[in-house]
């Protein structure tokens, strides 16, 4: 059974950049096959949390587990293919959309099939004609969609999405939300989604983490986010904390 099975668990995780403390005593789990949204004001340490889960950085102290094993027992390349990440400002390698989509497999010495590339484009709501387009000519929203498609090439078990819809228009935003929910339901991929949009966090999330000042304030069912009894969370959802 995978019901309520923990896929990523953080235990007393601390992270500091020099003398600046970024994350303080984070303890919590992300459940397999669920969508967890992470909300909180800027500077709460949300992106740092993602980089820790993807293994791009290591905690100063504390442990992170993926599928029950400490992440530092995995080969970094294996961990990163299983825990995919799409960042707020999608970085593209220079060249075409095709070259960007091929990248994850090229890194493994494999080749992406053209048919698969077209399917991925369709999945994220882009037409096939974009395949040979130079990424320089794409809009912010189109780049974000290519970035999501590229992350999906590795077929990650966990997908970390960092504000991926913040630069998209309303229609594209809804398309991406529907896409992510579909990926979650169809392939049982665990989704962890950082968002500034409370409405989005509640509507698509099963659970929500509220982070402030590097601390995990509360883990709550997303549908209960607005009714939290925690005073800081109440202030945040009311918009009193930016």
């Amino acid at each position: 059974m995978t019901e309520n099975q923990e896929v990523i668990t953080l235990s007393h995780v601390y992270y500091a950049d020099g003398n600046v403390s970024i994350l303080k005593d984070i303890t919590g789990s992300f459940l397999k096959g669920k969508i967890t949204t992470i909300v909180g004001p800027s500077g709460a340490g949300k992106t740092t949390l993602f980089k820790l889960c993807n293994g791009l950085i290591s905690p100063a102290s504390g442990d992170i587990f993926f599928n029950g094993k400490r992440i530092d027992t995995y080969e970094p390349t294996e961990l990163r293919r299983n825990v995919g990440i799409a960042l707020q400002s999608p970085t593209m390698i220079s060249g075409s959309v095709w070259e960007n989509l091929s990248l994850p497999l090229t890194l493994q010495g494999k080749q992406l099939q053209e048919k698969k590339a077209k399917e991925l484009l369709k999945l994220v709501g882009l037409e096939e004609k974009f395949l040979n387009q130079n990424v320089k000519d794409l809009s912010g929203g189109q780049r974000q969609k290519v970035s999501i498609a590229r992350t999906l090439v590795n077929q990650p078990k966990v997908l970390l999405l960092d504000e991926i819809t913040s630069s998209l228009d309303r229609v594209s935003q809804q398309e991406i939300e529907a896409l992510i929910v579909r990926i979650n339901k169809e392939s049982f991929t665990t989704i962890i989604w950082i968002t500034h949009n409370l409405e989005q966090a509640i509507s698509i999330g099963d659970y929500s983490w509220v982070m402030m000042g590097g601390e995990l304030i509360e883990i709550v069912e997303s549908s209960r986010l607005l009714y939290s009894k925690n005073e800081s969370v109440q202030q945040f959802v009311k918009g009193d904390i930016e």
Binding site: N54, L56, P76, T77, E78, R80, R81, G84, I85, S89, T91, I93, L103, P104, L107, Q108, R150, T151, N154
Partner: peptide, 20 residues
């Protein structure tokens, strides 16, 4: 730096990440 981090995050090795 962003490109290097991207390649690492997709499961690339340091050599692949720094190649460009």
């Amino acid at each position: 730096q962003d490109e290097t981090e991207l390649i690492l995050s997709l499961g690339g090795t340091p050599k692949q990440a720094i190649q460009a």
